[in-house]
Amino acid sequence: MMYSFTEEAVITGNVAKIWAVATDVARWSEWDPHEEESRFEGEFAAGAEGWVKPKGAPAGPFTIVAVEPGQSWTSEAGIPFGKLRGHRTYEPLGDGTVRVAEWVEVHGPMGPLFKLIWEKGMRRDMPRTFAALEKEARSRD
């Protein structure tokens, strides 16, 4: 059983700077209104592990499972009887803007519960996160 949803936005900025901010996991909680705390050590590559405490959700570890530098990355976290998978993409549109997207998959029997309890908050927070990403990337000039 799998449940998924996607959110996207077009933000202004340089894709390399946006990528650098988005993959600086240890600093997520400094700018992302969705994250209370985050930790990460080592290179941002498949197999690397981090830890995150989202607002309104349980804290826990995650693993980077795929990275296409400058373009996309995918992470997975264990949840009871399944896993939560997030795929993020960064697509330059050629006019100084970048399409950012996050696709969330919930695998296992927790899908309906996730939809009921957490999806609304995640969907509400994603546009705020995308706007904060744009602002943080600009501030690191």
Rank of each mutant, 00 (worst) to 15 (best):
M2H: 03
S4A: 13
T6A: 05
T6Q: 05
T6H: 02
E7D: 12
E8V: 00
V10S: 14
V10C: 10
I11P: 08
I11C: 11
I11T: 07
T12N: 09
G13M: 02
N14G: 11
I18Q: 00
W19P: 08
A20S: 12
D24G: 10
D24L: 10
A26E: 15
E35D: 09
E36V: 02
E36L: 09
E37N: 10
E37I: 01
E37K: 15
S38F: 02
S38A: 14
E43I: 05
E43G: 02
A45P: 03
E49G: 12
V52E: 13
K55L: 07
K55R: 15
A59T: 09
G60E: 14
G70S: 06
G70R: 01
S72Y: 01
T74S: 06
S75K: 11
P80L: 09
F81T: 14
F81I: 14
F81W: 12
G82L: 02
K83H: 13
R85I: 08
H87R: 14
R88K: 12
T89R: 05
T89I: 00
Y90G: 01
L93K: 06
L93A: 01
G94N: 12
G94K: 07
T97R: 15
R99H: 05
V100P: 11
V100M: 07
V100G: 11
A101C: 05
E102R: 13
W103A: 11
V104F: 00
G108Q: 04
G108T: 07
P109M: 15
P109R: 13
G111P: 14
L113T: 10
F114S: 13
F114Q: 09
F114T: 13
G121S: 12
R124P: 00
D125G: 12
D125P: 05
P127S: 01
P127R: 00
P127G: 00
R128S: 02
T129R: 14
E134P: 04
R138H: 14
S139L: 13
S139D: 11
S139P: 07
D141W: 11
